[in-house]
Design a protein around this nucleic acid. Structure first.
Length: 460
RNA sequence: GCGAGUAUCGUCUAUCGGUAAGACAUCGGUUUGUGGUACCGAGAAGCUGGGUUCAACUCCCAGUACUCGCCCCA
């Protein structure tokens, strides 16, 4: 057998071969590993989102992370930051211009049309979750790759759907233990009434042009709605007295909004009408909303948002289909969960540990483990360890209630030692009685006190 | 895209222009088939690249990453 001298590896110069660039052992900027210790939060979000999706009648759909760039450009709109500054665009080897999805809705609309979902009974409710990508400057709660949970409903224009969507978003937060949220809501009308409103707005801002910041002077040309959303002091001043879209809705949009508010009142959902809420994507019509974290004072940030996009399907070449949707940012939910000390998901912990000693027992223990697993007994092990002592240490740290000890002697006799980790009492039982005994003991459930009085509080 | 700050073992934190220290965690041991404590031991770090210097982890510059603010958004 050849002996190898194991060279000490260093993360600085991992590759010694010539002509190879050193591997950078680091995530890309704005991208993050979701490590095991974080998973209890993620699991909780997954469980809540999947349950709500099911309960509110949404079918799951999973789409590629990559689509033709122009799908996003056409839906989200040129002139938006998402498209102009934040898209992960690239060209494939075949020459296709594609992009990593910056959001879900565009792809879902594409899929809806492509697969003729317009023939399904309405509303067609679709739930999706996964990573989305924006090439942005990372900071807390903002990553270049981040996860969203996304809900869309197609084919129903009744504002009751708007109300239900907001209800789901709100329930989502509640179920995660995030109680203090604000629902911000606005209506930006349909293309018809928005056109008139925009004229009014442009006239208004034009008359106060010299009081606006540089960006907003530009926005006057490109995207006047966004001036309402500007955080510059002077622009805020000007925007306060600007005409509001809710005051200039056409009859239909007005009724829609009014009815929605009635539904929300009926649901006892507290909302704030925010005439400056405009959202950064061009496809919205009528209802737009966001869910903000936090109470009155303190920092607020958007946990999720969405709105109606009644014209988008038609614009993409599909049948004229009203639709509404929203997305929540999972990383942001988790930040908020931690802030309010919400409970993450607690996975089942093994209550039995299997220790082995000696070659023969080691072989047998592999099978025994598997038999226990097949019998639904969640069990831990540390097969790689040699000494019984070190295995018991692990067992102790895991906080199990029983340890099964399988040694040379037991392996020969067809028995196993069952050790109560609380009392230290142990007994030898024959293999064929083992499963019943374990099950009985675990059901007894009277073992809660640890022998040093300490509770294992691996909460996270 | 703009502005500010930060960068030392896996984590947290020291020190120093001249050999980088500790705590937690990890692994091993304290007579070999028995866990909590204690004791002993081991492994483990100066983000990268330049410059100043006899000498740089320390000072300077650049890059990178992270954090914060703005923009925007989830």
């Amino acid at each position: 057998m050849e002996k190898k001298t194991v060279k000490k590896t260093s993360k600085k110069a991992p590759v010694e071969k010539k002509n190879l660039e050193p591997i950078v052992l680091q995530t890309l900027r704005g991208m993050k590993d979701i490590l095991p210790e974080e998973q209890s939060y993620w699991e909780q979000v997954r469980r809540v989102s999947e349950r709500l999706a099911r309960d509110y009648g949404f079918s799951r759909i999973d789409l590629p992370s990559v689509e033709f760039s122009n799908l996003y450009v056409r839906t989200i709109g040129e002139g938006t930051d998402v498209i102009d500054k934040e898209m992960y665009n690239f060209t494939t080897r075949g020459g296709d211009k594609v992009a990593l999805r910056p959001e879900f809705t565009a792809g879902i609309c594409r899929s809806f049309i492509q697969h003729g979902m317009n023939v399904l009974s309405k509303p067609v409710k679709l739930f999706s979750t996964g990573p989305v990508y924006r090439y942005d400057r990372p900071q807390e709660g903002r990553y270049r790759e981040h996860y969203q949970a996304n809900f869309d409903a197609f084919g129903e224009q009744d504002p009751i759907l708007d109300a239900q969507m907001i209800q789901i978003a709100h329930r989502f937060m509640q179920c995660l233990g995030i109680k203090a949220v604000q629902i911000q809501i606005n209506s930006i009308g349909c293309p018809t009434c928005r056109k008139d409103y925009l004229n009014l707005l442009v006239n208004y801002f034009d008359s106060k042009k010299n009081k606006l910041c540089q960006d907003c002077k530009r926005r006057l040309e490109t995207n006047p709605l966004r001036i309402l959303d500007c955080k510059e002091d002077k622009c805020v001043q000007v925007a306060v007295t600007a005409p509001q879209s809710v005051d200039h809705l056409c009859e239909e949009c007005h009724v829609h909004f009014k009815t929605l508010l009635e539904y929300l009142d009926e649901l006892d959902l507290p909302y704030t009408i925010n005439p400056h809420l405009v959202r950064g994507l061009d496809y919205y019509t009528k209802t737009v909303f966001e869910i903000w974290s936090g109470s009155e004072e303190g920092k607020k940030f958007s946990l999720g948002g969405g709105g109606r996009y009644d014209k988008l399907l038609k614009n993409l070449g599909g049948e004229d289909t009203p639709a509404i949707g929203f997305a929540v940012g999972i990383e942001r939910l988790i930040i908020e969960m931690k802030r309010v000390q919400a409970r993450p998901y607690k996975p089942m912990k093994p209550r039995v540990f299997l220790a082995q000693l000696g070659n023969m027992a080691k072989k047998k223990s592999l099978r025994l483990f598997s038999e226990l697993e097949k019998n639904g007994i969640l069990i831990a092990e540390s097969f790689g360890r040699g000494s019984l002592k070190s295995q018991l240490k692990v067992a102790n740290k895991l906080g199990v209630e029983f340890t099964l000890i399988l040694g040379q002697k037991e392996a020969l006799d067809g028995t196993v030692i069952v050790k109560n980790m609380t009392t230290g009492v142990q007994e030898t039982v024959s293999m064929d009685k083992l499963f019943d005994m374990i099950k009985r003991k675990l059901k007894a459930d009277n073992v809660v006190v640890y022998h040093n009085g300490e509770h294992d509080t691996h909460g996270v």
